[in-house]
Design a protein around this nucleic acid. Structure first.
Length: 288
DNA sequence: TATGCGTGGGG
DNA sequence: TCCCCAAGCAT
């Protein structure tokens, strides 16, 4: 798909982590932080937080010195606050195992907390310029459609990596561009809900379009309802702790109005178990 | 392999 | 309005 990278060169969004100054200023640490934030959070929501984060903690060593409470509070409303915990742990591991330098080796990256197949290769490729397949949800959707002729990708698997690897150009720089271009196409043109095939640069090579876009409206596994869920309870408790920090909230004042007291207590217990909260028996706080 | 894990914007 | 889903990861 040779027209994909040429399309990317002209159509790519101007995102902070794609700018030269960003890489010059924050290096692989900046890429790592941005990738953590981008895990399941839209780019437009990440942008306002990224600069503040990196200004406060410009290196892994700086962040390793922070408390969990500070990190969770700075994470604010980005969602999935366990990511803040994992990023903090990863910073500490980078200091302890790698002298404060984000590793280049994919296996070393994979061994860091909160880093999986996507993030490890994203850092290796987008920061260090090495040649690996970078496969995220956008890439998997583009491959499912363009190559396999299906509206939706199968669940993530190692096969995605092999498929993308086979499509990657030999040259490191071109391969990195191809990775980024595929993700960008999925994010902006080949979207999940309303793909804009009319302006797609690889429409002529797309198996799904050639087949008449079968199964366009098929819904996949439904996300569990959020209203009334344990996750909502956890989110509400944690917001309370963030707003109160560094002060503790008396246990009796932790969302006493919550309709399901057992669910509330379950949320508190699970936050403590995750390391996102702690208690002395009287109050609840973000961990010190 | 399937599930749990936040939060908010857009169709 | 409601619902889909978003640069995933750990278990």
């Amino acid at each position: 798909m040779p027209n994909l990278t040429s399309w990317y060169r002209s159509a790519a969004r101007d995102l902070p982590w794609r700018r030269r100054e960003f890489h010059d200023g924050f290096g692989a640490w900046g890429v790592l932080v941005s990738e953590f934030m981008l895990q399941q959070t839209p780019a437009t929501r990440v942008i306002p937080h990224l600069d503040a984060w990196l200004t406060r903690w410009p290196t892994p060593a700086a962040m390793a010195e922070a408390t969990t409470a500070e990190v969770v509070q700075q994470w604010a409303n980005l969602g999935y606050p366990r990511r803040a915990l994992w990023l903090h742990r990863a910073a500490i591991e980078v200091v302890e195992r790698h002298g404060g330098v984000v590793p280049r080796d994919v296996d070393a990256l994979l061994a860091l907390s909160g880093i999986g197949d996507y993030t490890a290769r994203a850092v290796a490729v987008f920061s260090y310029g090495d040649r690996y397949p970078v496969v995220d949800t956008n890439t998997r959707r583009v491959l499912a459609r363009a190559v396999e002729g299906r509206a939706h990708p199968a669940p993530p698997s190692r096969r995605d990596l092999a498929l993308m690897d086979a499509l990657l150009p030999d040259d490191d720089v071109e391969a990195a561009l191809f990775n980024a271009a595929t993700m960008e196409l999925g994010a902006t043109i080949c979207t999940a809900r309303a793909p804009r095939c009319e302006v797609c640069p690889i429409a002529e090579q797309c198996a799904w379009l050639a087949a008449g876009r079968p199964d366009t409206g098929d819904a996949r596994r439904r996300q569990a309802a959020y209203e009334g869920s344990d996750r909502q309870a956890r989110g509400t408790v944690l917001r309370l702790l963030r707003d109160a920090a560094p002060d503790a909230v008396p246990l009796a004042a932790v969302i006493p109005e919550w309709p399901d007291a057992r669910q509330r207590d379950r949320a508190i217990d699970s936050l403590i178990a995750d390391g996102l909260a702690e208690t002395d028996g009287e109050g609840l706080t973000l961990p010190r």
